[in-house]
């Protein structure tokens, strides 16, 4: 091979190998939507004391851990707001109360049941005019709760 073509060929070969070695898999939007519907994935925007965070949570176990951490924060006096696309949740900083709002009935039942299992007294209120479900979870007295600290 002529010497002036050799660098070009080598560069092309290098690029080819570099591209081939990438392990990233790109899925189309239909597949991505299907994966999210069937796998447990939640994209959350949450605020702690007016500081905003975004997180994507994979797996129901991790979701439960996240929820436990948020509840621990509310029990320690922090204001927490959690948002998904169709669900929002916030707490009353002065009391051990967490409120979820959604127009999705299935999600509303799920939230209510999760909070009952954590020892909360939960009221589901349905507004027939707006179709909105509000789950208000009232926890035991602060003196009864564990004094977890979040680092």
């Amino acid at each position: 091979m002529k010497s002036k073509f050799k660098p070009i060929v080598m560069l092309a070969a290098f690029c080819f190998v570099a591209i081939s070695c990438q392990k990233e898999t790109v899925v189309d939007t239909d597949t991505a939507f299907h994966l999210q519907q069937n796998a447990f994935v939640r994209c959350i925007n949450y605020n702690i004391d007016d500081v905003s965070f975004n997180v994507t949570i994979f797996g129901e176990h991790n979701w439960q851990l996240f929820l436990d951490e948020m509840i621990a924060l509310t029990q320690n006096g922090h204001k927490v707001t959690i948002r998904r696309s169709d669900v929002s949740a916030s707490n009353d900083k002065s009391r051990n109360v967490v409120v979820f709002e959604t127009t999705n009935e299935t999600e509303a039942h799920k939230w209510c049941n999760e909070m009952i299992d954590k020892g909360y007294e939960v009221t589901m209120t349905y507004d027939p005019r707006t179709g909105k479900y509000t789950c208000t979870a009232i926890g035991p007295d602060r003196t009864d709760s564990q004094s977890d600290t979040i680092s």
Partner: peptide
């Protein structure tokens, strides 16, 4: 607070169930 929630729901014509 649960009692208060149910009372408010009744005034507003909403449906309220506690568990």
């Amino acid at each position: 607070l649960t009692i208060e929630l149910q009372r408010d729901a009744k005034k507003k014509g909403n449906i309220s169930v506690s568990t």
